[in-house]
Nucleic acid binder design. Structure first.
Lengths: 336, 336
DNA sequence: AACCTGCGTTACAGCGCTGTACATTCGTCG
DNA sequence: CGACGAATGTACAGCGCTGTAACGCAGGTT
């Protein structure tokens, strides 16, 4: 079953290839009669345009890449969904690249090893730093996601991690908690996200006149909830006393939940917990997690919009956008 | 900054375009000296092959589509991750299409509206039935996922839903449960998944000499956990008595958990719960869910392998593969 | 010496589409 | 009534790559 080509349709309809092309692409100035004849030929032959050929001719691929550490992490999966939807509204398809936080994979994203695959990239880096981004990034339109020290030339979308952490902390203070811990820093982590959130946590405490206790800042050995559970376990075994934890994300909060339960502590009775990302886990955990909710839809929308402008030729210095967040209050840390 | 093309490299290295192409593609019979000269030219000019052009010339895209109802559903996200990894090992990239369970979108997947975008499709249908699949599917290699009545010509990978449900039910029987319900059928659902699972549940009960009680089969109004919670709420309010539920998936189990909690029933004390998918939710839920675990990695591997063979030209009747499952036992339904 | 063999390489014709430049027709206006 | 611009359609040259056929040449065979 040989593929039907433009020229086949053209022959059938007794017009030139280009006229068929015009019909397919909805070009305005085609006689209704001609259009009808061409359309009939298209339907009869079951013609479908070959995207690859079109791409070669136009130089546009109509695809963007979305590169993230893990596509099955709830937060990233949700962001991916929103990006795919926004892109689709604008006629773009999305290729998802999973970097698994691997430095080589992240560089490959920037190097654009194979040219002409996508028109632009939305990229949430995990391991790679500013210098590398500037060094490896070439002329492919790029928008960065997350708390990255983006080079001055690169567009960038994030939430205000300092404000977010401060909001979470203030919520706990307002609810009467006095010994609030931060979970947590991650060993070997070079991104700024955690330190920004830690800063927000500290600012809120200082702002409320609560003395900082370095012992209340817990460090984990990794990004998984297991690592978080171990850190909380350790703290409890050491006899550390706290009545609330600001967690760097929902996974950590889940880990904390597990550890607290093992030690017979009640949530929120003994310890209140705030997570971050407002991912599906926050809703289904027990008790459901109060969680700092970045506006993921807005994040995707803004990121795609910036990228679209770049793809359309906008040049100039990098633009930095902050998307709003809210605190989604649930049982793990109820209001005052 | 004009793009470097093959011909530019060829000029620089004083060879023909084709020789450069041979070097780029690792063709064996190239003199080491020539190869080195060409490679040097490539490096100096920073040449990167244009994938679109290559595709047009070869007719292969090196991409497959993965079409699923929702990419941020934990189960699908995990499967997507595995598919992406397997595909990547074989040099393929994955485009993720989200159908949102929309019939039109599902048909579009099969119709392959734009030709030449991908070499094959892995597709988990939700709404579309056998006839439609046969009708709309054209010559694009296709592998179906899930309990579908696949047309005889189409490859297909699934878990044994009857056995799985029977295993889950037997586990509950072995643990001494006597009034075991099934949650649930879904109104308007036309796929076979639920009815197969219901069948397995019934077979296990009959096999153990437990009389079937139709009242213990609950029907929900949708696929979300909210709908499941409503169904369980209703059953409890009606005074239905049961000491275990086999749930059609983890989302339903989560919904059941919510409803039981509202009515003051303990899990697993009063009611044991078995989910399905062994998605991440099963682990975060409290109590953690015993869940029927399809081997998702194997599912992805087998599906991709079948697709690969089709893309390489295998023809013939559809092959049906069953991938193994295990019962992941956690607190919501402990062993005997 | 004439002939083959096979490696290394080249020249060139596509792959299927769109952009550009140009030809034709038509309605309208001075 | 001729002229001119807009509307409509055509021809053809690319887009950048790979497949194919064919060529030159070294080394071995008869």
């Amino acid at each position: 079953m040989a593929r039907v080509r433009l020229v086949d349709v053209a022959e059938r309809a007794n017009v030139s290839m280009k006229t068929v092309s015009n019909v397919v692409n909805g070009y305005a100035h085609v006689q209704p009669a001609t259009r009808a004849r061409v359309q009939a030929a298209i339907d009869e032959l079951g013609y479908k345009p070959n995207l690859t050929a079109r791409r070669l001719a136009t130089g546009r691929t109509g695809m963007i890449a979305l590169a993230m550490p893990e596509i099955d992490h709830p937060y990233f999966a949700e962001v991916a969904r929103h990006v795919a939807e926004v892109a689709s509204d604008h006629g773009y398809r999305v290729i998802i690249e999973q970097t698994l936080g691997d430095e080589t994979a992240e560089r490959a994203v920037l190097r654009d090893r194979d040219a002409g695959l996508v028109d632009g990239v939305i990229f949430q880096p995990l391991r790679i730093a500013t210098l590398d981004i500037a060094r490896f990034h070439q002329d492919l339109p790029l928008v960065l996601l997350g708390e990255v020290e983006a080079p001055v030339t690169t567009d960038h979308v994030m939430v205000d991690n300092v404000r977010g952490a401060a909001d979470a902390t203030s919520h706990l203070l307002a609810a009467g908690r006095t010994r609030i811990g931060f979970l947590g820093l991650v060993e070997g982590d070079i991104t700024a996200t955690n330190s920004r959130r830690l800063l927000g946590y500290q600012e809120a405490l200082v702002g409320a006149g609560v003395p900082l206790d370095p012992g209340l800042v817990l460090t984990t050995s990794g990004f998984g909830s297991d690592a978080a559970a171990v850190a909380v376990d350790d703290a409890l075994s050491r006899g550390l006393r706290f009545d609330a934890l600001v967690c760097r994300d929902d996974r950590f909060a889940i880990g904390a939940l597990t550890a607290l339960r093992r030690h017979g502590r009640e949530v929120p009775g003994d310890v209140a917990l705030v997570g971050w990302d407002d991912s599906a886990m926050a809703q289904w955990a027990w008790p459901p997690l109060t969680s700092l909710a970045p506006d993921k839809h807005e994040l995707a929308r803004v990121a795609f919009e910036l990228l679209l402008e770049r793809m359309q030729g906008t040049t100039g210095v990098g633009r930095h956008r902050v998307v709003p967040h809210t605190l989604q209050v649930r049982e793990s840390a109820p209001g005052a």
